[in-house]
Amino acid sequence: MLSTKLCGRSLENPTILASGILGVSKASIARMGKEGAGAVTLKSLCHEERKGHPGPNMFVIDGGMLNAVGLPGQGIDNAAKEFGRLDDLRIPVIGSVFGYTVKQFGEVTEKMAALKPAMIEVDVSCPHMDYETPFYADAASLAKITKLVKKKAKGIPISMKLSPNVHNIAELAKACEKAGADCITAINTASGMKIDIEVMKPILGNKTGGLSGPALKPIAVRCVYEIYKAVKIPIIGTGGVMDGKDALEMIMAGATAVGVGTAVYYQGPEVFRRITSEMKAWMKEHEITSLDDIRGVAHK
């Protein structure tokens, strides 16, 4: 009922653990599979080891979460040693990569591809990263990265993860598609800030951070809707999905699969099973047998 085809791979269901949530160890991603996720995305890795930003890194506000973890990671070389390969788990694994320069995006992708993930997600859009230039806001830079990554991925499908902190996300998605992207992940977090009025300072160690959770969802749904109109490649709709109804909404906007991240905070790793059982119940009630029948239906 929920089986989903994404870039040639069959997923048991359309829920995908979003990058940055618990995807640090092989044991933890295997566990997310057991918890009912259809696929898992690793925490993003680059060419070097990164400690990330000083704390506070993450907290929860009314209606969502703010984070500026700062992409800490052991780097692709250490990860390659620890993981060995990524195609020997029951669950499809999506490797997430980034770099500071276009060239580094290519180098990290090449090393990631050697681990044989099901897909490679390209994180061009972390809102609080010291990229050389804000790749995510410029169609020409995005096209350059897409082309290089596509070449280095050696046939493994790539998904470009886009930022909502732009005015023209559909155009940017189109530029990625034209440059060879197989998929679009939309969206990354929205840039935000929280100030504590007692100590009169921003709380995040990095001062600004990314907003996720329920407060992000309407923005994500709008972005997916606009991208669906502009491109033919599939979309992983990510942003504020908390329950089965949210996942269905994302699919009606045009998403093929649905990223789940912050919901793991609100409901624990069991959230995947909850989302899929709620989706099934709704579909049964509405006599819908396949997600293909409602994908993008909001555009009609």
Binding site: L22, N67, V69, G261, V264, G268
Partner: peptide, 20 residues
């Protein structure tokens, strides 16, 4: 530990989340 509420994955021991 970074988040303290079971999201960031830094405190994993095997597949268990230490903070939660």
């Amino acid at each position: 530990m970074k988040c303290g509420f079971g999201v960031c994955g830094n405190c994993l021991i095997d597949d268990r989340i230490i903070c939660t």
